[in-house]
Amino acid sequence: MDFTIQNYKDTRSGFGDGLAELGKKNEKVVALCADLTGSLKMDAFAREFPDRFFQTGISEANMIGMAAGLTIGGFIPFTGTFANFSTGRVYDQIRQSVAYSGKNVKICASHAGVTLGEDGATHQILEDIGMMKMLPGMTVIVPCDYNQTKAAVKAVALHEGPVYLRFGRPKVPNFTPADQKLVIGKAILMKEGTDVSIFATGHLVWKAVEALSILAELGINAELINVHTIKPLDEEAVLQSVRKTACVVTAEEHQRNGGLGDSIAQLLALKMPRPVEMVAVNDSFGQSGTPEQLLTEYHLDTMDIVEAAKRAVARK
């Protein structure tokens, strides 16, 4: 696969652009935002489809409830706010009015993880994937770049059922093909390898791409799989890769507890026990700093993936 950087863009812009395009094609798509229209890049949708855009103000619980209500009548609501306010703040509303009620709501969450940066730990949620994946029937998607986020918006609109779509704030390399569709639940093999399987999601997919060449210099031929759908996990893709490589690295901008690594470790423990190394935040809150500083501080950087791969290979 070609890893050429096409440009640097934020994944939230992929969401905003995808939503505006979707609005043109599907008049059942409506959007709600809790006073973060600019941050979520929902301005274009709000401008072009004012009748289908609901500004709820800073009241996330009401926004989630309204979204559940809008499905009754056949609409496909996309809610937008920061990941922290999209999940922990409204967990019970999502649990009862959306998930348990089986409502077709798309919970779209920006500014996830430490790469939110300077705002600090109050806003840097690192537990959201865990919270959302524990809800029965909830689909959890974490795209890796602008193009994939845009593709994800189209895919989730066609999916019947609640979805948590997580993306972020900083401009990062945009490197996946613009025409690549996102198939929910189908992981993408980005580079074949034989020595170690790297399963990465979100912003850390690019970090894993960077790790590939360093690992190659060390004589480690790593396989890289982009797990954009954390739930339902593409179990077959995981098992097929690990059958070949026999060891694993997981990489994500999230707590170890409840994240992608946790899902993969559970699968392997049940079906194919192999060494697993996790690149993830280890039971701590974030802090203020630049995105790059924070990725280094919390051991989520390229060299952390390289070191984890070396450890995984050594444990085989």
Binding site: V30, D51, R52, F54, A61, N62, M63, I64, G65, M66, A67, A68, G69, L70, T71, I72, G73, G74, F75, P77, D92, Q93, Q96, S97
Partner: peptide, 17 residues
């Protein structure tokens, strides 16, 4: 505490429809 919000959403859906 959740029903009023849901009802508002359903009422908005009725208007749109």
């Amino acid at each position: 505490g959740q029903g009023l919000s849901v009802a508002i959403g359903a009422a908005q859906a009725k208007k749109l429809n």
